[in-house]
């Protein structure tokens, strides 16, 4: 199976997209592809706790990130520069997620055999 990097770029408010990229990740992991997930740009907002009771209803699909451990997806990177640019550098990341420099992200992409942009 292959080393696949998945780049998440969409904010959580683009709910359909964020949900469908999660399904794609789980499907790839289920057939034993080795995945690296990279949250960059507005996708870092996906890691914020959601107010599901607000006037903009959203399903708290982030809870499903907990499935990454079950699928042995250990490589979850969050672009540190994207966090800083959005004033989120102090954000406590979900378990298993690490903030990564541009250089680390570059290295991850370079070692991947396939890249999918979500």
């Amino acid at each position: 199976m292959q080393r696949i990097a998945i780049i998440q770029t969409q904010p959580p408010f683009n709910q359909g997209k964020a949900r469908e990229s999660l399904d794609l990740i789980l499907a790839l992991a289920a057939v034993d592809h080795q995945l690296s997930i990279i949250f960059t740009g507005d996708a870092v907002y996906q890691l914020l706790p959601l107010n599901t009771q607000s006037s903009q209803p959203l399903k708290a699909f982030q809870k499903s990130f907990g499935l990454f451990a079950l699928y042995e997806i250990e490589h979850c990177l969050v672009c540190a520069a994207s966090l800083t640019a959005r004033g989120l550098s102090g954000l406590s990341l979900p378990e298993g997620f690490t903030a990564a420099s541009q250089a680390e992200i570059k290295a991850t992409l370079a070692s991947a055999q396939q890249i999918i942009r979500c």
């Binding site: 789980l26 708290a60 809870k63 499903s64 907990g66 499935l67 079950l70």
Partner: peptide, 18 residues
């Protein structure tokens, strides 16, 4: 309750195994 998603077959098998 934990993952906010209804498990499909593969997911269920994996989770049950775990």
């Amino acid at each position: 309750q934990e993952f906010n998603t209804s498990p499909a077959v593969r997911m269920l098998v994996k989770a049950m195994a775990a």
